[in-house]
Simulated assay, not measured.
Amino acid sequence: MLGKAPLATAPHGPQSGTVLPMLATAARSAGVPTDGDLWAYEVKWDGMRVLADVHEGTVVLRSRTGRDVSTTFPELTALADAHADVLLDGEVVALDDGLPSFSVLADRLHVSDPRAAERAAARTPVTLMAFDVLRLYGVELLDRSWQDRRESLDRLLPSGRAWQVSPVYPDASSLLTATREQGLEGVVAKRRTSTYQPGRRSPDWVKHAHRHHQACLVAGWRPVEGSPDRIGALLLAVPGPDGRLRYAGRAGSGLDGALEEGLRAALAGRELPRPVVDVPRPDAAGATFTEPVAVVEVRHLGRTSGGRLRQPTLRGLRPDLGPSDVRQE
C-alpha cells in the first residue's frame, strides 16, 4: 500500500493541493479487458513513475513516494520549454539497445549531486513517456474522463528529446503480441470513461506484465566466499496477504559493483542481531541481518508453494519506494 507521502505538490503553482498516483491492478488469468470501445491500450514501460509539474519556467519531478527527484534527471528541465503550466503523469525510461531497461535506469536513481547527475545524463539520457495530464493552464483535469484527458494530452506537442506521448492502441491482442515479441514490459488497459483516482489501485486500469517483477525489502546479506566484507547475495522479504513480512529467498545474480555500493550506503548502521523474518539455516549461516528499509527490484520466474521467488535476479535499488510501498505483486 502507498504511504501518506504525496507524489506531487504544487506550492509554486495555481493549485495548492497534493496528488497521489493512480495505480493499475494486475490482470487476472483471463488477461486484460478486450473491448476496444470501452478500453484503450498502452505499452507498460519499464521505468520509474513520476509526476512532472511544470509552472512558469520551473520543473518539479516527484517520485511515487513524493520524493523530489528533479536533480536526478536534469535533462527533463527541458519540459519547461513545452508549456507554461502542466502536470504530466508518466514513466522515466532509459534505453538499452533501443528498449527501455530498468537495470540501466537504476544506475541513475541514486544520483542526487547536481554535477554527478549532469555527467550521468550525458552518459545515459532519459525520456519521460507521458501517458496522462492532470492539470493544464491552471485547470485540474482529475474529474474528467480518461478519454477527455487523453485528447488534451494529444494536443500537447512534445519538445525535443525531453518527453514523448505514450501511444494508444485500439486492440489488446495485437499489442500483447507485439510487446511480447519486441521484449517490452507489457500492456496497460485503461477504461475510457474512468476519472483519475489519486492514490487508488483502481480496476479501471489493468496491467499485464510479460515478466514477473517484485519489489523486495532487504532483510540481510551474505558475503562473497573468501571475502567476508563483500556482499555476495541478499536475503529478501515481502509482506504476505496478512501484511506480515515473509522470507522470499536470497538473490545474488545481478549484484554488481554499483549496486553493492548503493546497498552499503542504504544499509549502513542498520545491522540487527537476528533476522526480522524466518530465514532457513543454510541461508542464515554467516549472514549479516539488517532492518528491512532498503528496497530492491527483482525479476523472477514465479514462486514456490512456500512463497519463495524462483531464480530471482536483482535489477537495482528502488530509492523511489519506501518499505510501506512494497506489496506482493
Rank of each mutant, 00 (worst) to 15 (best):
G13A: 15
V19C: 10
P21M: 00
P21V: 01
R28E: 12
V32C: 01
D35Q: 08
W39Y: 05
Y41K: 04
W45L: 15
A52Y: 03
T58G: 05
L61A: 08
R64Y: 06
R64E: 06
T65E: 10
D68P: 11
E75S: 10
L87T: 03
V92L: 09
V93I: 11
L95I: 06
D97M: 12
S103M: 09
V104M: 02
V104F: 01
L105T: 00
D107F: 13
D107A: 15
R108M: 09
V111C: 02
R115L: 13
R119F: 14
R123Q: 13
F131I: 03
F131M: 05
D132K: 04
R135M: 12
R135H: 10
Y137A: 15
D143F: 10
R144T: 03
W146C: 12
S152R: 15
L156N: 10
L156Q: 11
P158R: 07
A162M: 10
Q164F: 12
S173E: 15
S174W: 04
T179C: 00
A189Q: 06
K190W: 01
K190V: 04
Y196I: 00
V206L: 03
H208T: 07
A209K: 15
R211G: 07
H212I: 04
G220V: 02
G220P: 06
R222W: 09
R230D: 15
I231V: 01
D242Y: 10
Y247Q: 09
R250N: 09
A251M: 01
G257H: 14
G262W: 07
L272H: 02
V277Y: 02
V279L: 00
V279C: 00
R281V: 14
A284I: 01
P292Q: 08
H300P: 06
R303T: 12
R308D: 14
R315S: 11
G322N: 10
